[in-house]
Design a protein around this nucleic acid. Sequence first.
DNA 1: TCAGCTCACACTTTTGAATAGC
DNA 2: AGCTATTCAAAAGTGTGAGCTG
Length: 746
Amino acid sequence: MLSVEMFPGLALGPQRIGDCFYRDREVPAHRPLFPPTCDVSAAALPPRLLAPPPVPSEPSSKPQKDEVKMELENSSLWKQFSSVGTEMIITKKGRRMFPGLRLKVSGLNPSLRYILLLDIVPLDNSRYRFQGGGWQAVGSAEARLPDRVFIHPDSPATGAHWQSRTISFHYAKLTNNTLDTQGHIILHSLHRYQPRVHVIEARDVLRWGGGQHSFVFPETQFITVTAYQNNKITELKINSNPFAKGFREDGMNSKKQRDARQKRKIAVLNETLDIVNCDPCDSTELLQQPSDTNTDLQALALASLPPLPDPSCGFRPDEASYPDALVPEQPLDLGQAFMASQMTDISITMANGMQDTAGSEVANNMIERSDSMAEPAFTSSLPAPPPNSSSFPSAPLPQPSSSFSSLPSSNTSDPQPSIPPIDYPSLLSSSSPTLSAAATTPSLQQTSFTFPTPPPSNTTSPQPLLPSSSPSSNPYHAVPETISPHAQTDASFAAPSSTGQMSAHPLLNQTLQQEPGGDDSPSDQSSAAFIYPNVLPTNPDSAQPLNQPVAPTLPCSLPAHGASTSFAFPSVPPPMQNLSFPNVSPSPALHLPPQPLTAAFPPSSFPHPSSSLPHPSFQPSSCLAPSFQQSAGAHLQNLPNPSSSSSTSSYPPVEIGAVPQFNPAPPYRPEVVLHHPSLLPQLDSSLPSSTPPPALYPAFPSYPLRLCQDPHSSLSIPFRHLYRQHQHGHPHPQGSYLDMSTRAVF
DNA sequence: TCAGCTCACACTTTTGAATAGC
DNA sequence: AGCTATTCAAAAGTGTGAGCTG
């Protein structure tokens, strides 16, 4: 369990509490977001600790931030899966997600740089089992696994870059290997999860302090499995995934073809048997056995026998389609039989293919595009998923206000419909009218982004993630940024005085030495390594523009060319922040009430002096949704149906708390893995646990950006793992620190 | 006994290198 | 020599099914 004690840096200053907000473009909702992991602790805390969102003193000083929107291009495909109950295979080596997350983002400042992240959080505390044709919660979830974040290979890239193309996270892999060293996202099997996408404004590569937006698409939630449980899902996967094309009706690896191959093998074995057994009498009897099973058994039993030279002897199974059947007497028959068998398959295949021309082909095309196209054209025999219903069994978990109302899944016969209905409409009700009908609007749009921090559940880590900030501290106010993301805050790159430092990796240094260019064009991404230049944990406040939440610095000490340099992420996902944190006084802020409006992300600890600074203010006017304010427990299902509300320009505020995934989650061992090449170098096992001497790095513009537009190139490099301080690690005297030595680093 | 997991398998797509042609 | 198109092999991504484990 991650605790503030272990990660002092996790403790949030008063200002941090305001980092997380639900934001509505039209009617900005100003809500603190708390990570699921914090829900538990939050639940235990008195509601009073959750100060109401401060009234926006400075409405929309940054219009563009309010305009940030994200669409799920392949939402229709996702909905098809969700209607059945999406299952995601997880393997030890890691498995890609299918469907993949294909997104379109808009509203970004074309000239600003952004980092896109993907993380997956548990939807509830339940473990599921596929029973009676549906998923049902059968017990409590296992201990939460280390949180890992997948950073889009293109990160950081300009808003123009992100907006000019479809953003795909299909390279992210899921694994159930808790000891995974590849940087894959670790999940438990038979648990429900919800992917989240975060857009972090990066003033420069070194600093993540700009606007933060989080997006949740309810239809993308899934249950992890090691083997598909629902045949419908299997069918959908096969029909939708190009790599599974072989398993389609017309595929060479289809059931039919596999059976045919098996029969041929059997035939071969039988031939061997024939050779072995030359008894004419026996062969006659054998020929009369239509059962493949019998022949198989016999063949297997006799396969080991030494072959006999007499080919004339032996039986021929009816299905012996082996072209080279050794039956001189009836070579033609055998051949015909074989051809007939093959032709049957072929004819069927062709027929299927012909039929598929309109269906399968379209499906294939769609499938092929599914990864690249927004709208999957897949049309399956499966009943169209009810717009609002999900086949996911409702978990018998305490979901104070869940937008997932139990809906009659396709498996109406299921005696135990435990599928929490996924009310897309409700969640999508917030969809912006500007979005295409096919596009799915994220249910959650947070103005500020903070990574989940470990819940102070256990005694060792009961430290509050949130600042002890009292309402008076007005934690919900974002500290106005004085510096635009573009502005090169050289000063900000000054060596961090904070204890937490991350030494730059050699690769990083190399990159740094390279021409910063700042060109986000893919062509520039020759290097898979994306360097996050060392950033000084200096007070970002001065540099941060108003209305911008104070970005937490993430000081990490990493070896750089033998010389450790300071490397700080002003605002980094909590997991990363856990790497090393300056002394942060633990605050009771962690004790947050389990209000439905809790932020999806726990406020990350922010070591820098921002605490003394005014809280970042989120355009209250734009961030606070009246409906939310009125009823924190408002359920998503109460939200207007997207279809009906599509015309509405305003996004109904969505309570994260209402979303199952944001419900209290079991304690977990916080662990952050940045799936980005640039982070790899930093993961050297040689990383010093102590804070290296701070190094001064040039401003962001001067850093060469190695954008990984080519996923392959970027992926060729092992993901870097940034581990949080070990659970049992002891807090650094000066506060949090990166204890890389306690954990295996790859 | 059984649910869940691991692994090998066959198939497919993707990718990059090698080659040929202009 | 440089560029483009084609071919080929390797790598990686799929679901399946047998076998293993607790």
